[in-house]
Simulated assay, not measured.
Amino acid sequence: MKQSSLMGAHYLTRAFILLTLAAYIYLLDRSDSLHYYIAPKMELWVSLCPIPLACVGISLLIQALFKRRRSTCSCDHPLSSSVVRNAAVYGIFTVPLLLGFLLPNQALGSSAALKKGMALSGQYSTEQTLKEKFKSPDIYNEEFTELARLLYTEPVIRVNQDIFYETIGALDLFKKEFEGKPIRLSGFVYSDPSLNKRKAFAFGRFLVLCCTADAAPFGVFIKPEHTVHFPKDTWVEIDGHIHVTQNQGKEILSINAAQIRKIKQPKTPYIYPSDDSVAKLKRELAKK
């Protein structure tokens, strides 16, 4: 009888966790908030998870309430009766769920960037002239090089949301060749004491590969032409010119900002790696 009651308690706990997780994912999907936590290519699959989770949870609930349960198995792994051990194991699932329900759904910002460390950029006529001007240093940068050739012919470089990371990467790789070129881009304001002393700030986005657990702050050094002040995490759009500046003894990509406008946070605030940034840019340029 004691073993049966213990099994029922475990089944109830597992059913609660699974059903709560299903409800949480469902609510995120209904409120269009999944993009705060995972990459777009995974949203469809995650949005379908509540169905199997609910089925398993309901099955466990029925077994616990109506005592339709069998012995766990014959593999000598009895269910633990230790309160501390069970609290630790189930806490791994319940604590994140509790935080998920209690904390607001919002994009990562300056606080997360401060903890992870903002990585400022520091890492190019005729077609023949462009090929001579922009030569890939290795096979790993060929995509950046092709992007740079396309971007160089534009009167104003508009950093597209879909290829933000690749565009900044191309500009950073060939920053000296792009010196003085007009540019427009948007992101959130990130600042720290070292930047404040230079009357500058970092302009950030979070690069997400899979989910927000692997999100990395990705920034550009901004030097306003006029004194401005924006609270951290304010979303702004910047018009300026590309410049090469020194930061901690290294040459980095920077932008001399002529105009800075406050904007609303975009629906999808994060940036993601593109599977074919060159093709996307060509399609964008063809629409003009």
Rank of each mutant, 00 (worst) to 15 (best):
V84D: 05
A119E: 15
Q123M: 03
P78A: 10
Y90H: 12
L53N: 09
S59V: 03
K67I: 03
F101Q: 01
L120R: 05
C49A: 15
F101L: 13
V95D: 00
F101I: 10
A88N: 04
L114N: 11
C55S: 09
L53Y: 05
G100M: 06
I92D: 04
L97Q: 07
C73E: 10
L61K: 05
L99I: 12
A119C: 01
F66H: 08
P104A: 03
S111L: 12
R68T: 08
A54K: 00
Y124D: 13
I58E: 02
L60H: 13
S111V: 13
P78G: 12
S74C: 08
V46T: 07
I62R: 13
Y90A: 05
I58H: 04
N86K: 00
S82W: 07
S125T: 11
L53G: 01
G117M: 14
T72W: 04
G100I: 02
S125M: 12
S47N: 02
M118P: 04
L44G: 06
Q106D: 11
A87W: 02
F101G: 01
Y90F: 15
S47V: 01
Y124I: 12
L103G: 05
A107L: 06
P50C: 05
I92V: 15
S82E: 08
L44S: 09
V89P: 00
R85A: 07
R70T: 11
I92S: 12
V95Y: 03
S111P: 00
P96I: 08
S47D: 02
L98G: 14
A64N: 08
R70P: 00
F93C: 15
Q123V: 01
S81I: 00
R69I: 10
D76N: 11
F66S: 04
P96Q: 07
S80N: 07
K67H: 09
V89L: 07
L114M: 09
G91N: 03
M118Y: 01
R70Y: 04
C49D: 00
